[in-house]
Design a protein around this nucleic acid. Structure first.
Lengths: 377, 377
DNA sequence: AACAATAAGTTCAGAAAATGAACAAAGCAA
DNA sequence: TTGCTTTGTTCATTTTCTGAACTTATTGTT
């Protein structure tokens, strides 16, 4: 379909953002002449397009970028019921949305997707012709090929080859991925981290997830377990965690843990926001809870910075606020626990995201496979 | 000099070890026909050679590997005085060795190297013709291009463009690197991690260093600071560290810290080995010191596993033993602090290394640049 | 306003590299 | 022996890339 140079060009653009032909040629080690032809071809296929014109000395350069309607990807989140199914264009815009009932049976899931997909595609002309992949986000561990779910406590799965089952039912290339990793990919391809080669996304929710991009590529780890900061020990001999050990970050700083701790402290707060309000009114118990959680999360992030020296930490959250005590304490804990020389050198951005993050993330997994493809040398 | 396919072939072989032409062709996405020519050419140039013959069904396959004498690299360690200068072949064997007095003045260092290099090359015929790069290992932070030392407390440097100075004096491509990262590279290219794509090396010495290989490439981090586990906070509000914060791993588990703690505990031990002996005789203070250090190192390594899920952790040490209480406690601490599901899944190897590790590591940095080169897409 | 100067992007003939298909080579299995 | 299987080679053909000259679009300068 696409030549390897064309693939490579898409890869480079998706990794370094819109660039001129000359820049792209240089960064791919090709001549301007070769780039001219490759770009012309991809533009005529509708995959690339010219966007901005940059004026400098000499003839202005024209930036090439992915064409929003060059390819479409389906994304399904298995984290909610009903499960959302979205259709994303090449820019990460959601152009169609459906839902389907969640099931734990992979065959039923596949059938549901096969049933719902036509409805989704009907919402957007062109999309069915250019549908280039499906992505599924789920809570759990996924194998290296992004084909099989090794283990999901939430879904009660062990070694379920979900991608293959769906591919068979729908005939479309399908990839599955862990929820946090899917969000990281969507931030890289479509979001706030397009031009950052090395960064980590921390997803703050009822649980805490994390994923790393290293060298412009999702780093999954040797067993798909890279980024499992939730079960990093923060309080040795702390309270027991459902994972079997003690004092995990997850038992202290996750939204669920914060709510539970608040309840145990006799507070009646139902949400992080309420807790923040209480704390701002001087409620000592609320302050204590938020302080403990913020310090814990900050310490874990500091470790992350010390260990991996990322160019950016992106904290995504659906609920909650990061501009209150919790966020402030977290920031302070980060600063206090990284090498003073590096303190403040790693930008930490918090970003509120809507409920479709997971589905959009799932779609981006398909896009990532389309663009970056299997590990090239 | 070499075509990009030839470069790529060297890269693939150095990353996945000796392989047959057919396997190499497949993993590079080329036809057998193309591989045939590329391999022939590299063999005739003396860069590759045929090694083992593997018998199976059908015609046996012949493995291709780097020719030990295909290229030579110089390596200099600025961590000792006198500084060792070694000449390494393509297999990491040290074929010649010299020393030179250490200086803090980059110009004098460059001059010393230029003076000593001819003596080194004289020890091995062919080498001067095939010398393909110089590598320098030092304690401190190095910039992305491996050209400039951003900061070295030991040498008292800040933004010293050492590589350029040496290149100018010697006319040979020169790269500098942090000590731990250099060791990691030599383990990947020449040592025990040749076939592992993702691993971390922890160098245990007077200080604690660490470096990551991710996706078959050295990961340096956004400011060259990836792997700085020495200043990860292990005991919040612990004793002050020279870095400015408190409770760093370095203040608890480095060889230096262990010796100092032992002294503060009133023990007269001069080395880790003596301390182990004392502990085995039941000396409570010795046991306490080793236990604390082992737990700390184990916890840090557990974090490393949780965060990055490497395929291997390699602990290198010049002095000391890892088969005593210290090592045992460390292992236990690792097991206790990783997700139970993953406990024991990450091999941890300890490896005693000789005093030339740094110089050999430095040489491997040059080899790494020759083989893997600047970041390709 | 005319005229360099500068750099981006294009064109095209020629060079380089990769492919496909047929084939030689080196074993195993029966 | 005779197939069978798989590796590796050969070579004409096709694909892809390059180099050099050229066109284009702009800024800066007289």
């Amino acid at each position: 379909m696409l030549t390897s140079s064309q693939q490579q060009l898409l890869r480079v653009i998706s990794q370094s953002g819109p660039s001129s032909r000359t820049v792209l040629a240089a960064s791919m080690g090709l001549s301007k002449a070769a780039m001219s032809g490759i770009a012309r071809d991809l533009i005529s296929r509708g995959v690339l397009r010219e966007t901005e014109t940059i004026y400098g000395q000499g003839r202005p350069s024209i930036l090439l970028d992915l064409h929003p309607e060059g390819a479409f990807f389906g994304g399904i989140s298995l984290l909610e019921d009903p499960a959302p199914l979205v259709l994303s264009d090449f820019n990460g815009n959601i152009v169609a949305r459906q839902t389907m009932p969640l099931s734990r049976d992979p065959d039923i899931i596949a059938e549901m997707i096969a049933d719902t997909l036509p409805k989704l595609l009907a919402e957007c002309k062109d999309a069915s012709r250019k549908l280039s992949g499906l992505g599924i986000a789920l809570s759990g561990f996924v194998d290296e090929k992004q084909a099989s779910c090794v283990k999901s406590t939430l879904l009660g799965w062990q070694d379920v080859p979900l991608a293959g089952i769906i591919r068979q039912k729908t005939g479309i290339a399908t990839f599955i991925e862990n929820d946090a990793k899917a969000v990281a990919v969507s931030e890289k391809l479509f979001g706030n981290a397009r031009d950052v080669q090395n960064f980590s996304v921390v997803s703050f929710d009822d649980g805490i997830g994390c994923a790393h991009f290293i060298g412009g590529k999702l780093y999954r780890g040797n067993h798909g377990g890279a980024g499992e900061i939730a079960h990093c020990t923060i309080e040795p001999n702390g309270s027991p965690c459902r994972c079997g050990k003690r004092g995990c970050l997850d038992t202290i700083a996750s939204l669920k843990a914060i709510k539970e701790t608040a309840k145990a402290e006799g507070l009646s707060c139902q949400s992080l926001d309420e807790l923040e309000t209480e704390a701002s009114l001087g409620n000592a118990a609320a302050i204590r809870v938020l302080h403990r959680a913020g310090s814990a999360l900050g310490l874990a992030i500091a470790h992350l910075i010390q260990f991996n020296d990322p160019g950016l930490i992106l904290i995504t959250h659906v609920e909650g606020r990061f501009d209150g005590l919790f966020g402030t304490v977290m920031q302070q804990a980060v600063e206090a626990n990284v090498l003073p020389r590096y303190a403040g050198q790693t930008p930490i951005r918090t970003q509120r995201v809507d409920g479709d993050v997971w589905a959009r993330g799932a779609a981006s997994i398909a896009a990532h496979n389309f663009l970056i493809g299997p590990n090239p040398y």
